[in-house]
Structure formats: structure tokens, C-alpha cells
């Protein structure tokens, strides 16, 4: 029998365990340059020196801008195309639905590795190799079947009666999607937005494989460059890692806070019918 106190302790333990890498990263990132890494784990004072060195070593500002450009384009595009696909799948006849769900699962099972070399050839053939388009391209198809399935799942939970009444009011497909489906699936949209952000922000392989000019590089590649500059300069490496992690970390925390607040508000409003499934955070 596991009682609530034991569960709370278990939760705390897990929280500690999962934040440990981040903790070590942070400790090293703020370590003074003068304190050799041979001298203990704890920094004897905190300093921003390593971040200063980071910006001196590489054009980090430029790389950050590129990263922002990619997510600014890819995330809204992903939400658009993934929700379209999810919506269409949820509204199509049963047999068609099944086919697309199965196809989506199959695509999920294709290892990314398998596509590197031939995508490289495809991108170069259609002329987007070497440009930021090569990083954004998957957003035109919803980025990942995973996102499409998330929307599909959310849209299918909406009672058909709601769709039907919209249709009786003369709303077309797009209007139904925009005015009926999307507002209800807001938590899913938030979740997909965060996941897509994380996906594109952290994408290391696409720039590695498809970009050739360093002025187009994004932050994940910058970290690789940093490591090539000096693989033993841990404070500098950790400062770079922390810099590249700050935005997604903030976003995740904000999303979870938002989800928590929404959950609380909803619990207050309709204590009986909590549709908790959509608040995944």
C-alpha cells in the first residue's frame, strides 16, 4: 500500500533526479574563470564571465536570431497544418480515418536516420538545401505525425452534435475548424506549440546535414562549434548550453503554469465533468 505521503516523497525524489543535469549545468555555467574545474563542484562565487566569453567566442547573437527565425516560422505553420490534418482525419468517414491513423503510426516508426541521406538529395534537388527552408520544411506537413494525432485525438472528443449544428448554421469546413474546433482544442494547441517549439529549437541534425554557411547556423550547431573550440572548457560549454536552453525551459514552465491555472479554474467551474485528458501538462 503506497500512501499519499510516500507518493509525495516519490514525486520530490523524481523532481530532484530529473533536474539534476540542469543543476550541474547551471553550477558550472556561473563558475568563475579563475576557479579550476579540479577544485570542487561548487563555484566559490557566481559570475557572468562565461557568458561574456561565449559571446566573444562565437556570433551567438546571430545564431540565436536564426533559431528564433526558424521557430517563428515553423511553430505557427506546424499548428496550422497539423490541426488541419487532425481535423480532416477526425471528420472523415470511419474507414478513411482508420487508414490515416495507421499511416501516421507507420510514419512515426520510420527512424529519422533512414531519411538523412535521401532527404539531403531531395532538398538539394528542389533547391532548398543550404537555406533555412530546409530546417522549416517539415512544418508544412505538421512536423510530426505525433502532433497530427494529438489534434486528431482532441477533435474526435468533440461531440458530433457540435459539428453538426455548426454545419446547419451554414459554416464551411474552414469556418468549422476555426470557429468551433480550434477554440475547444486550445489545450492541445498549447501542447503542440510547446512540443513543436522544443523540436525546432533543439534540432541539431537538420542544420548539421543541410546547412553549409555558418551565418545560417542555429544554436544547437553553435554548441557543437563551441565544443570543437575546447572540449575541456566546461564552464564555457555549460554557459553555452544554458543559453541555448533558457528559452525552451521558460516556455515549458510557463505552459505548465498556464495548464495548472486552467485546470484549477475549470475545476471550480464544473467540478463534475472534468475533462482532464486535454490538460496534459
Amino acid at each position: 500500500m503506497i500512501g499519499p505521503p510516500a507518493r509525495t516523497a516519490g514525486r520530490l525524489l523524481l523532481v530532484g533526479l530529473f533536474t539534476l543535469p540542469l543543476l550541474f549545468m547551471t553550477l558550472a555555467a556561473f563558475r568563475p574563470t579563475g576557479q579550476a574545474i579540479t577544485a570542487g563542484l561548487w563555484p566559490n562565487s557566481l559570475t557572468l564571465d562565461n557568458f561574456r566569453r561565449l559571446f566573444a567566442a562565437l556570433p551567438i547573437g546571430r545564431f540565436t536570431l536564426n533559431s528564433l527565425l526558424v521557430v517563428a516560422a515553423a511553430v505557427p505553420l506546424t499548428i496550422l497544418t497539423a490541426s488541419w490534418a487532425g481535423f480532416a482525419m477526425a471528420r472523415l468517414p470511419r474507414s478513411t480515418q482508420r487508414r490515416w491513423v495507421l499511416l501516421s503510426f507507420l510514419v512515426l516508426m520510420v527512424p529519422g536516420v533512414a531519411l538523412w541521406s535521401s532527404r539531403f538529395l531531395v532538398y538539394n534537388r528542389i533547391g532548398i538545401g543550404g537555406t533555412l527552408w530546409a530546417l522549416i520544411a517539415p512544418a508544412f506537413m505538421g512536423s510530426s505525425p505525433f502532433f497530427v494525432l494529438m489534434f486528431y485525438r482532441a477533435f474526435r472528443r468533440i461531440p458530433p452534435a457540435i459539428y453538426d449544428s455548426a454545419r446547419l448554421d451554414g459554416a464551411g469546413v474552414l469556418a468549422t475548424w476555426r470557429q468551433v474546433a480550434m477554440p475547444i482544442a486550445r489545450p492541445t494547441t498549447l501542447a503542440v506549440a510547446v512540443l513543436a517549439f522544443v523540436l525546432y529549437w533543439g534540432d541539431y541534425l537538420s542544420p548539421l546535414l543541410y546547412l553549409n554557411e555558418s551565418r545560417r547556423y542555429t544554436l544547437p550547431v553553435a554548441l557543437q562549434l563551441l565544443q570543437q573550440l575546447g572540449r575541456s572548457d566546461y564552464p564555457l560549454l555549460m554557459a553555452g548550453s544554458l543559453w541555448a536552453s533558457v528559452v525552451p525551459l521558460t516556455l515549458v514552465v510557463l505552459a505548465i503554469v498556464a495548464a495548472a491555472l486552467a485546470e484549477r479554474i475549470r475545476a471550480r467551474h464544473q467540478r463534475s465533468a472534468v475533462d482532464a485528458t486535454d490538460t496534459r501538462y
Partner: peptide
């Protein structure tokens, strides 16, 4: 090498 393969 990759850049040559990409034609760029």
C-alpha cells in the same frame, strides 16, 4: 565533402 555533394 558534403558541400560538394550538395552542389554548393
Amino acid at each position: 565533402a558534403t558541400d560538394f555533394a550538395a552542389g554548393t
